[in-house]
Simulated scan of single mutants.
Amino acid sequence: MFPTQFTSTSFTWERKKLGDVAEKVIQKNNNNAFKNVLTNSAEYGIISQRDFFERNIANKNNISTYYIVQNDDFVYNPRISNLAPYGPINRNKTGYTGIISPLYYVFRVLNISTAFIEWYFKTTCWHKFMYQHGDSGARSDRFSIKDNELKKLPADDMEQEKIAKTLTSLDNTLQLHEDHLQFLHSFKSFLLQKMFFDNDIPPLLRFNKFTEKWNQCRLNDHTIVTMGQSPNSKNYTNNQTGKILVQGNADLYKNKVLKRVFTTEVTKTAVKNDILISVRAPVGDIARNQYESVVIGRGIASIKGNDFLYYQLEKMKNNGFWNKYIAGSTFESITGKDLKNTKIYTTISDEERKIGNIFSSLTKIIQLQEHKIDSLKKLKQFLLQNMFI
């Protein structure tokens, strides 16, 4: 099967082998000229061994046999994992020359786009070859393949510059969006700290014309709190005609209820727009119920409340408010009494509405940004699967 091609191009893909476009690096670290030991991680790529393990693993008296890895050299690590079922092949993008264990295979590409080869090894196109020409080795955590076989690995060579530029541009765009998402989360955390009481310190940011003193009260005196009660497990079902069961934190996802388990027995319920809070490990996670009615188990409590209360509870969770109730407990949980007696702050309705609107809008912006990132990741995965043979 041939890959998706760019418009106006009709190249015939030329089947090449790794040995045709790369050479094995065999230069040893004679006289210990280089000290910076590298490692090749499936998750993080090629990084300093000290940064990865937070300490030096290699014996400084035994690094003369290590291979020298220049910037843009590639390293194959035969250690297998869920992220790299045949071991990761990554490019040294540290910007400096380092050394790596002789257990790794180091190679340098010639007369071919380095970025193209880097992207090629981010796909699974080469996995079939590894499966057919290697074995799992004597150790279950390592893949074994002879050097001569590895040199036969297909490394196709057409449209390489366009493919590399497209994927690199997409990756840069994805990184920009992820950086912006991180900024939005940080900005929201900043506002949560400044627009609500912080312990006994009044909010430092307030809207103009609001000068009224905020009041403190028990949660149960301000609104209705309902502790969940689990149905009998024999009444659990996968049939979606049953009631949605919210048992605990696993059923809360991105501020909403995750429809996962159903029940034919109705115990305690929460209605649409109720705040749901986890009262078992991890305590304090919250969501808005978007369904007309759900059954809540003993790991959940429901709270009637506006957005002002919702984001006040989110701020309390972020600040570790619930830790004082669960310290020293074998199983992290809070009681109904603890929850109902929790002290919260209130203000006049207009100010509560404005504060709630700010955080509701910001949360929607964050969700849209997350959706953009998910879409970009799906596009990247599609291109990786369809732009290589």
Score class of each variant (00 low, 15 high):
R55L: 12
R55I: 00
R55P: 11
R55C: 12
I57C: 04
I57G: 10
I57D: 12
A58C: 11
N59Q: 15
K60N: 09
K60D: 12
K60P: 01
N61E: 15
N61W: 02
N61R: 14
N62D: 13
N62G: 06
S64G: 14
T65F: 13
Y66Q: 07
Y66S: 06
Y66C: 06
Y67N: 13
Y67K: 09
Y67L: 11
Y67A: 09
I68W: 10
V69N: 13
Q70S: 06
N71A: 02
D72L: 15
F74T: 01
F74W: 10
F74G: 00
F74E: 00
V75N: 05
Y76Q: 09
Y76T: 08
N77I: 03
N77H: 00
P78S: 06
R79I: 14
I80D: 03
I80S: 09
I80Q: 04
S81V: 09
N82D: 10
N82K: 12
L83R: 13
L83K: 08
A84L: 14
P85V: 02
P85G: 04
Y86G: 00
Y86M: 09
G87C: 07
G87R: 04
G87E: 11
G87V: 01
G87N: 08
P88W: 11
I89E: 06
I89H: 02
N90S: 07
R91C: 07
R91V: 10
N92A: 09
N92I: 11
K93P: 03
K93Q: 08
Y96K: 06
T97D: 12
T97G: 01
T97A: 04
G98S: 14
G98A: 04
G98L: 12
I99F: 15
I100P: 10
S101N: 10
S101H: 09
S101I: 06
P102Y: 05
P102S: 09
L103I: 12
Y104S: 12
Y105F: 13
Y105P: 00
V106Q: 05
F107G: 06
F107L: 12
R108W: 05
R108P: 13
R108V: 09
V109A: 01
L110R: 02
N111H: 06
N111C: 03
N111M: 07
N111L: 02
I112Y: 01
S113H: 07
A115R: 07
A115S: 11
A115G: 01
F116T: 02
F116C: 02
F116S: 10
I117S: 06
I117T: 03
I117L: 15
E118W: 06
E118A: 09
W119P: 01
Y120G: 01
Y120N: 04
Y120S: 05
F121A: 00
F121Q: 00
T123L: 07
T124D: 13
T124S: 12
C125T: 08
C125P: 02
C125S: 03
K128G: 03
F129K: 07
M130N: 00
Y131K: 10
